[in-house]
Structures are given as C-alpha cells and as structure tokens.
Design a protein around this nucleic acid. Structure first.
Lengths: 338, 338
DNA sequence: CCAATACTTTAAACCGGTTTAAGTGATATC
DNA sequence: GATATCACTTAAACCGGTTTAAAGTATTGG
C-alpha cells in the first residue's frame, strides 16, 4: 500500500501495538475498544466490526499483565507440581480443563528446588486460589504463605487448618491389597513403607490395621519413595514372608528388581503389590498389581472445592477422601506351597 | 501490643497491604519504599531500616503483576512443556536453576491440550524469551505467535527461521546403536521408527545412513511414539531380523513387551535398543540399552542462547547439536547362531 | 417542537507498582 | 554571605489495560 516499506523493519523492533493504538487507528476511545474486545454488550454492531477489523489488522494482542492488574478478579488458579512427575502431570491436565470449563486460567509453579518460593510467586501473581499437588512444606510455613488465599491440598495430608484436602483413601487402598493377598492364601505379609511423611504414615497404619483385622502379625520394613529404597528394604526380609505390599509403585518396582536379581520368581515365590497404578505398573515386563487412585476425580473435585469457596462463599474447610480400586495383574498369586 | 485484637479479623478479609500502605505507615513516599525494597542505593540507612521494619510488620508482599507492568524489562522466561513428561521435567528444572542464576524468573505453560494457547499466554504475559520443549505446532503457526520474541526450541527440529535450536545428534545417536549391534555381530537390523515428525525423520535417515555405511540393507518398520505403536510394528517383522533399533524408549518397551508375550528371549533371540535413556530403561526388569541425550547440557545451553540474545544482542539464529552417548544394558547381545 | 428515555461513546479514575525530574535541606566552596 | 554541591525525598508520569460516571446523540412520545 504505502510505497517502499522500510527495508529492515526488524532493526527497530516495533513495539507491540497497545489498546491505545487500536483506539486511535479506529477513531474511538480506549475504553470502547476494551468493551468490544471483552465482548460487552455496550458497543454498537457497526463500531464493534470496525474495532475488531483494526485490531486484527494491527495484530493486536492484549497484555495479560495489564489486564490482571486492572481487573478486580483475576480468575486465575495457581497449581504447584513437580514438573516430571507423571501423577502430577495427569492431575494438572485435568485441573486445567476443569478450570477452563469454569472460566478460569491456570498458572503452574514448579516445586523442584524451592517449594516455598514457587507458592509465594503464585500468590504474588494474584492467583485467586491455590491447588498444591503433594506439598512437602511444613504446615506452619505453608500456612503463613497461603494465609488469605483459598487452598486445596491434593494427595498429601498436610494439616493446614483452613485448607481443603482431596486425597485417596490410603488406608482403604492398602487394605484392598492386603485383603487380596489374604484371599489368595497369604498369611505372612510385609509392608515396605514410605519411611516418613503423612501419607507414608497413613498407609503404614492402614496396613497394620488391615492385617490385625485378619488376625495376622504385621511386618513393616522401612522403605522409602524410590526404587532404590524398595530394593534396600529387602535386606531384612524375614524368611517366611510370602507377599510384599509396597508403599507405591516405585518402591514396588525396586522390590521386583531386587527379587529378579536374586532369582526369586514372582509371583511364584513372592507376591508384590504397588500403589498408584502408574503407567509403569501396566508394562508387560512389570505387570504389577497396584492400587489405583482416581486421579481424574481428584482433579475435578479439587476444582469444585475451589469454586465453592470462590463463588459460593464457603469458608469452613472440607476434606474429601476418595475410594481406591485394586487393579490385579501378574505380580500377585497364591503363595508357594510350604 | 495493642489491646484486644478484633476477634474475627477473618470476617473482613483485610485486603493485602500495598506499597502505599507501607509508605503511609512509615511516613515516607511510595517511591521511596519502592527504592528501598528493590535495594537501590538511594535511600539513607536510617530510612531503609524503618521502611523495612514497617514492611515486615505489615507483612507486605509486592504485587508481581503490578511490578511486571511497570518495569521496562520483566526478566521472565517462558517455558512450555507437557507436565507429566519426565524428559521435560528434567529439562525444566535445569532451565529454572540456570535462569535463576542469571537473575531471571521462569514461568511454565502446559502444552497438554492446546499448545498454541499455552504459548500465546506466555507471550501475553510479557515473557522476554520462550523455551519450547518438543513443540509440535506447525512452524507457520508457531512463527506467527512468537514473531518478535526470542525463541529456543529444544528437542525438536521445527524449522523456524528466526529461532535457535538445541537438540541431540539424533542421527549420530542412532548410528551409535547400529554400530554397537554390528559390533556384536548383527547383520539384519530393523528400525521401528517414530512414524511422522521431524525428529522421527532425522532418526530414520540416520538409521538408513548408518546401515548403508556398514553395507547392510536397512529395514524400517513404521512405529510411533508409544508402547502400543512399538508392539504393533512387529506384525510385519521379517524372519531374519536379529536386532531392533527403537525410535525411543517407549517404542522399545512396547517391542520388549510384545517379544515377551510371544516368548522370544531378549537378547537371546533378539536384541533391542531404545533412545532417551529414560528412568524406565534403567529398571532391572526392562534393562534397555539406550541412547542417552545430555538433558542437563541441553537445558544449560538453551538458557545461554537466550541470554546471548537478550543481553549480548545476538540476532542471527544458532543451532546446537549435542553428542549422544550409548548406554549398554542387558537388552542387547550377540545374535543367535544361525 | 420539547422533554423523556434509550443507546452509544467518552473521559477520567484506578489497579499497584517503577522511574525520573524536580525539590529540600544541609554541607562545602569561594 | 552567596552559591555550588551533595545526599535524600517527593511528586508525578507512566505501564496497558478495566470500569464507571457523565456526556452526547437518537429515538420516542405527548
């Protein structure tokens, strides 16, 4: 249109157009442009057309930061997670789609190095609520940070007085595993536990309670969260144990590895169960009987809890415990005949 | 200090204190508070003390949105990733710590559902640069979005004219696998490829080239990214093939599962290699020979490329190809004697 | 033809910071 | 004693939007 465009537009990196630019170009006021772009019913059809055309021509894109600052509500939810954790990944995706359906944006915070810092950043970014996936920060510190922000804790039993909690029925899940093994005929069952942490405690207590109900002696081996912890736990394995209930799938896989290396056939000589029903458990080479948590339900419920607080004004905290489901695979079978 | 605090401060959810509140309480101007908090050398020691004390007493926390809007530079880097992907997780953590060391914040965008939307949000949030982990968006669309924002693409061979690229030497990695198999004595080697995508193509071509160099006939089986794709690829496996080079670890694990189910011993009757050296490959039950990419190096180099553009004013795009390393495990061995 | 009512549009305040030009004293210079 | 210098502070502009009260223009009715 205009003869000879400047040859190197790139040199002067044109500042991206602002709403004011659009307004000026369309010959209207800035406020009107804002109304048009936010789909308000005020502006006339003719103006709307014109403004939209100009905006498109200029390649206008709103500035989120400015909008967030100006808006009374940000409609933004903060989610903290460990980036590589597949469990967190599944939860995050489901949370995101549930949030979007309710008209909220989601921003992620990585809790790899410094969880406190990650949460603070989300709070300072005006998130209206926080969803914390498996937080490990001490409750006191956590409480100070989230103070006035509605918070839902997922998959962790942090005891925050004002926070909502959504988690699986850990004790019940372990009981399902124990019951399954007992039904197969096992009488000496050991739990490779998660060492420390609230969840580890819940599962360990669940194990002790479940075995007690069946009139069995509970054997608890100190384990941990990783494959290595699981493998190491077998150093002190009593001879008569015929089945192992792992704290989670990783622990259980460590146990499987160790058994494999020691030439102990599974489930021929030893049955093993995990917890999480992770993708790993499904592999043919691993094929681990595991307790499934309803990830998707957890995510959806967590978002619902947030909405209750944000939109219905709920203030008293709620805790939701979801039932688990045992997925039986090839790592469990009847005990070897004595 | 003050007698009887109001019994239910919670009822009127006190708005969080602003910088103005701090200024007023300390009897100074807002600007001065800003200077103190940002550690400028202007304010006197006495004032600094007083302002900091008031800020602490009021529990003041700056508003990131406001600061971002006002500051000329945001010192923020946007990273897109698939939340549950362990590869992306490792990269993201390393990127984050490298960025922090250079004084930048990192914000994450989840590319589960809508990659375009995720990237747009980051751009609109004033990220100064973008790091895209394994983007799958068509280059044209991508180019339009990132337009004026410096961008580094990791682990993907998107052909964006202005973007930097950091990736593993895919062809070289596959060649390492092939050479290893040839050294073991294999002569009929097949590649279960990644079907479509730039990376898949690079690896496929690398495979063809490597076998050709050794004077072998390349056999390529259409595979894909997942375990199922890998398993399905074996439907058309020629009888005389004794080794399989998988597109990635997941494909290879699918292959392993299928072989296991068919009663084909590995590596007795068939050798298998993967690509990524993922945690999965290390499991004793899987124990997969795999090509390792230097994740950490990739992350650090990507951040360095960003800094070059942001702080040294580089404008011409760079592509960095990193060497791979073959990790030999139990899934490869000499071919079965004919 | 003028007032009342309904639509559109504008101007200006505001969100909560950062930044800079202009002030204010106090001390140093001549 | 008048002026230049220096160390602190302040006031105000600005970032790029949203929102609301008020103004302008049409339309309608009596």
């Amino acid at each position: 249109m205009e003869g000879e465009a400047p040859p190197a537009a790139r040199l002067a990196p044109r500042r991206r157009p602002t709403m004011q630019d659009v307004a000026h170009e369309a010959g209207v006021s800035k406020g009107l442009v804002s109304m048009v772009l936010s789909g308000s019913s005020g502006p006339s059809a003719a103006t709307r057309e014109r403004v939209l055309a100009v905006a498109a021509r200029l390649g206008y894109r709103g500035d989120r930061t400015a909008a967030l600052l100006a808006r009374r509500r940000t409609r933004t939810l903060g989610v903290t997670l460990i980036p590589g954790n597949p469990y967190h990944g599944e939860l995050a995706e489901e949370i995101q789609s549930a949030a979007e359906a309710a008209g909220y944006e989601v921003v992620l915070g990585a809790t790899g190095a410094d969880e406190g810092h990650a949460i603070e950043t989300l709070v300072d970014s005006r998130c209206e609520a926080l969803l914390l996936l498996g937080p490990t920060l001490p409750a006191a510190r956590l409480g100070r940070i989230v103070d006035a922000v509605p918070t839902v804790v997922l998959g962790s039993a942090v005891d925050l007085p004002d926070a909502d909690v959504v988690r699986a029925d850990d004790a019940g899940g372990i009981a399902q595993a124990v019951d399954h093994l007992v039904a197969l005929g096992h009488r000496r069952i050991a739990h490779v536990d998660g060492r420390s942490g609230a969840i580890a405690e819940l599962r360990r207590e669940g194990f002790v309670a479940a075995t007690a109900r069946r009139g069995l002696d509970p054997v608890v081996l100190p384990g941990g969260l990783t494959e290595d912890d699981g493998a190491a736990a077998l150093d002190d394995l009593p001879d008569d144990v015929t089945a192992l209930v792992g704290f989670n799938d990783r622990t259980a896989v460590g146990v499987l590895d160790r058994l494999e290396r020691s030439g102990v056939p599974v489930p021929g000589a030893m049955s093993v169960t995990g917890f999480d029903d992770s993708p790993m458990a499904r592999h043919a080479r691993i094929d681990l009987t595991s307790v499934a948590q309803g990830y998707l339900d957890q995510a959806r419920l967590a978002v619902r809890l947030v909405l209750e607080r944000l939109e219905d004004g709920r203030t008293e905290p709620r805790e939701i415990v979801l039932p688990t489901r045992l997925v039986v695979r090839g790592s469990t079978g009847p005990p070897r005949r004595a």
